[in-house]
């Protein structure tokens, strides 16, 4: 079996994996990183989105072997100590989650969206998050949260790379 080395939320793992093992199953079943959920089997829902080398990726669409040598940040590794990432705070403030199942992926996708467009319009947020499905919120508060986080991050001069330093 292939042996891979992958860093997840700042910890380096060496694992022997079947070539077909999905990254999300490596995270959940082998590494105990259950903060990243699975919502579908066709890469439509985006619930499993993580940061892979600093860019958002749907971890159900990546094989564990493809992540060999990569840096992965999941929702569990996003806060700095007790201080939440501005996107986490904004989701809380704007009530941008209800059941919370889509939230980890939604937050990761939103952070990546701001990397490309630090001050997105409402429309840009809606288009940018099209690959992440939420069944609870109707997206209104998610859009508000992303734009709030954009403001907060701009004010703080925050250009924060979401990857292990």
């Amino acid at each position: 079996m292939p042996r891979i080395t992958v860093t997840v939320d700042g910890v380096t793992y060496e694992e022997e994996v079947e070539p077909r093992l999905l990254l999300v199953h490596l995270l959940r079943d082998r590494l105990g990183k259950t903060g990243t959920p699975v919502g579908c089997d066709t890469s439509n829902c985006g619930a499993c989105t993580v940061m892979l080398d600093g860019r958002s990726a749907k971890s159900c669409s990546v094989l564990a072997v493809q992540a060999d040598g990569s840096d992965v940040v999941t929702i569990e590794g996003l806060a700095r100590g007790d201080e939440w990432h501005p996107m986490q705070k904004a989701f809380h403030t704007e009530h941008a989650l209800q059941c919370g199942y889509c939230t980890p992926g939604m937050i990761m996708a939103a952070i990546d969206l701001l990397r490309d467009d630090p001050d997105p319009s409402e429309e840009a947020v809606r288009e940018g998050l099209e690959g992440n499905l939420c069944r609870c919120t109707g997206y209104c508060n998610i859009v508000r949260a992303v734009r709030l986080a954009a403001q907060e991050m701009a004010q703080a001069g925050e250009r924060r790379e979401v990857r292990t330093p």
């Binding site: 259950t34 903060g35 959920p37």
Partner: peptide, 8 residues
């Protein structure tokens, strides 16, 4: 829920 400490 925003930190991934869930019990699904």
């Amino acid at each position: 829920l925003v930190t991934g400490r869930t019990t699904w």
